[in-house]
Write a protein that binds this DNA or RNA. Sequence first.
DNA 1: CTCGGTTTGTTCTCCCGTTCACAAACTCCT
DNA 2: AGGAGTTTGTGAACGGGAGAACAAACCGAG
Lengths: 260, 260
Amino acid sequence: MPGGAPDRGIPEATVARLPIYLRALISLSEHGIATCSSEELATAAGVNSAKLRKDLSYLGSYGTRGVGYDVEYLRYQIAREIGVTQDWPVVIVGIGNLGHALSNYAGFRSRGFRIVALLDSDPARHGEQLGDLTIRSLEELEDLVAEHRIAIGVIATPAASAQQVCDRLVAAGVTSILNFAPAVLSTPDGVDLRKVDLSIELQILAYHEQRKALATRGAPRGVNGAAVPAASPTPAAPAASGPPGPPGADPRDHRMGEPA
Amino acid sequence: MPGGAPDRGIPEATVARLPIYLRALISLSEHGIATCSSEELATAAGVNSAKLRKDLSYLGSYGTRGVGYDVEYLRYQIAREIGVTQDWPVVIVGIGNLGHALSNYAGFRSRGFRIVALLDSDPARHGEQLGDLTIRSLEELEDLVAEHRIAIGVIATPAASAQQVCDRLVAAGVTSILNFAPAVLSTPDGVDLRKVDLSIELQILAYHEQRKALATRGAPRGVNGAAVPAASPTPAAPAASGPPGPPGADPRDHRMGEPA
DNA sequence: CTCGGTTTGTTCTCCCGTTCACAAACTCCT
DNA sequence: AGGAGTTTGTGAACGGGAGAACAAACCGAG
């Protein structure tokens, strides 16, 4: 039993939910609600109340039995635990469509993140004004990171240059990277890396959507009648994206040999 | 063990990785590589080779012992399993900065997703041309979903209107939703919902960053969020906002509560 | 045909995360 | 002051995923 400080080792799954709780608490606070039960907060956050209580218990015993949680108090405690009571300077590399959107995203600044630099490799973009920031050359990366003591970098470049940019960020001293490029990046130990891949999210939805369509049809699955590429190095074209039509038959074959 | 067709119940964690494998296979294919081992593919995907093999085993026994996997063959099998051999019409609601970026995102079309409608509630935006699409009124949502048989919707609106848009999408027949709005949405059973929250990802990084900064300082505890590099402007301790102050004085509290 | 080398598919174990259920603790009312 | 009613915090059971290890299966050489 912790007589004093709560254990600093917070499970990763819990850490991932703390920002959701924080957002829910801010919302409650803005609605003038001063106190809430674990059940109410859990509902607002979209999780189970038992899970919420266990998550909060990792932070300490904030909250009062028989009453619930003081919204402002808990909000501050979570914010402090996450670190958003501090000011985090951030650099965004790659100011395409996505980088553009990210630099304007209001949710960053309101959570303690301050975008201090926008970098792009395209000289044609240098000098372009975005809000109160100017797009600068990638060559200034190292100086800017050092000058502003930037610890967090966002990669929004094409996949081809993502690893290169990542390496430069790490070399310059960035120790946390958020990657939007559709590429697998590798970083040395001590550097945290998270990724957001928009098309992967859609593909996961597509998988479940396909299963649902299959279930309601009751019929065995079927895609367009394209032939399955053979198991030999034959560059067949499996794309075959056609107009929405009735599904054809599918050879549900997965054996690749015959038993001896 | 399954003597016949592979079990249709693929673990969620595996489903989430299949698009990564697919991307890695496409990359290998474009480099002219016809065959690869689980070790190579696992490296390209950034995962453990044992995990990769187990994941693939849920799909069936594609692959040849002693040889490896045929890149084109496996690529097609995964694409079919995910459902990206089909054509998925998608509607995007909320064409702000993010919606704008999403509508231009090349990764969607190349994965079988076809954006067929851009909707926004702001009349000033209606008629605006984005690529080969025109921003239309939200009032056309129901008709468009029915006409194109849209099953997947993307919400990129502000948080305040997200649930309302979500409800309309569901009512119109959409059964899979990707939510970018920073809000917790609720959907009826049978409707899949995934969320991408940009600021949450940064907050998770901030947590680890804070821990790293704390560890290098050697101060295990007792340091409030102010003793960090750079200048932290305003920790913004929430002044007791009203009668219900923080509950009883907490021993590990720093400066929050006034002694009752 | 047989043997050695290689790689997959699977099994087993361990660990993390989720959920249930309940004692402890606090408030309010009498 | 005491009891009834709530609500938190936590111990314990449960389920799923991750990783290591191994047997089965395939290719090629002699």
